[in-house]
Design a protein around this nucleic acid. Structure first.
Length: 287
DNA sequence: AAGAGGCCCTGATAGC
DNA sequence: TGCTATCAGGGCCTCT
């Protein structure tokens, strides 16, 4: 489910629902994720208050009252569900939870609050949890990452100089978190479509104006996706079961064989495998 | 250093 | 119906 916009949607709802709440109990049902859920994870979280929920790129950051930070990455298939407990103070009694949205399999981690619990589900197990011990280490954790598209650092000058002389195609660069943080496979195709740039164009061939378009359109696409609640494909729903709407705005992603949506363009959307990921683009207006 | 490719894993869907 | 193959929103690692 998760590129930056979907993670941001999760962050917003978490911040609304669990900020200020105290963690009463943690159950790790299956520690096997991309990284093992760390030993001592439960002890670290128990009795702590959630100060706030932040996000960098596709990573959620739960700030705890003991100054530790819990990082959650959703990988390809991670989802977070919040389930209300109808009867107060019955946090140990599982029979109180009946959510139509809660999957039956692959619920790895459960975090209990007074009258609700957070459930982390991840069939493919590409997601993970991490505990960071202080702010300094948190900074270090992300210091190799490129800027988010919203950062002033992500400007045409930076983009142009990063791509200078590079053989690799621009689509791969948009997925490269050392270049820019938060863009994934869906939005990379959409950004390039809006910028009228072919995904397999080599970095070194991008003009200054094209770099400017990538700067601007990355922000436009991601902000629009956030505004529309993210993209609901393959069952992505927010933590309270609400679907996003951005998939209705896809111009090229999953539109192989269909007509280009650009005004007066007679092109057709093509699908091409680039660096082992599907790319969608118009064969006419993207150059 | 940069770039290509493989790999971690389960589940949905398509094709026979 | 049931098999096999392919593909899926990510990111790390290794090899050249």
């Amino acid at each position: 489910m998760p590129e930056l916009p979907e993670v941001e949607i999760v962050r917003q709802s978490l911040n609304k629902k669990i900020k200020g709440k105290i963690i009463k109990k943690i159950i790790v049902r299956n520690r096997n994720l991309r990284l093992k859920v760390p030993t001592g994870f439960e002890d670290c979280l128990k009795d702590q208050k959630i100060i706030k929920v932040n996000r960098f790129s596709k990573y959620l950051k739960l700030f705890l009252s003991n100054n530790y930070i819990c990082i959650i990455h959703l990988g390809m298939s991670g989802t977070i569900h919040l389930v209300q407990n109808k009867k107060k103070n019955k946090i140990t009694n599982m029979s109180f939870y009946h959510s139509p949205f809660l999957p039956k399999k692959h619920n790895h981690v459960e975090i209990f609050f007074d009258n609700l619990k957070l459930v982390y589900n991840d069939p493919r197990r590409f997601g993970f949890f991490e505990i960071i011990e202080n702010y300094k280490l948190l900074e270090k954790r992300f210091d190799k990452f490129g800027p988010e598209p919203f950062s002033p650092k992500f400007n045409s000058k930076y983009i142009f100089s990063f791509l200078k002389g590079k053989q690799k195609n621009i689509k791969s660069f948009l997925l490269d978190q050392k270049f820019v943080s938060g863009i994934g496979n869906i939005y990379a195709s959409e950004i390039l479509y809006l910028s009228k740039i072919k995904p397999d164009k080599k970095g070194k061939f991008l003009k200054k104006e094209e770099c400017k378009k990538i700067e601007i359109n990355s922000r436009i696409i991601l902000l629009d996706a956030i505004k529309k609640g993210g993209s609901s494909i393959r069952n992505f729903k927010s933590i309270i079961g609400k679907e996003g709407n951005f998939q209705k705005n896809f111009k090229v992603y999953q539109r192989e064989g269909l007509k280009c949506k650009r005004n007066k363009c007679n092109g057709v959307v093509k699908k091409k495998n680039i660096s082992n990921r599907s790319s969608f683009f118009c064969n006419s207006c993207q150059k």
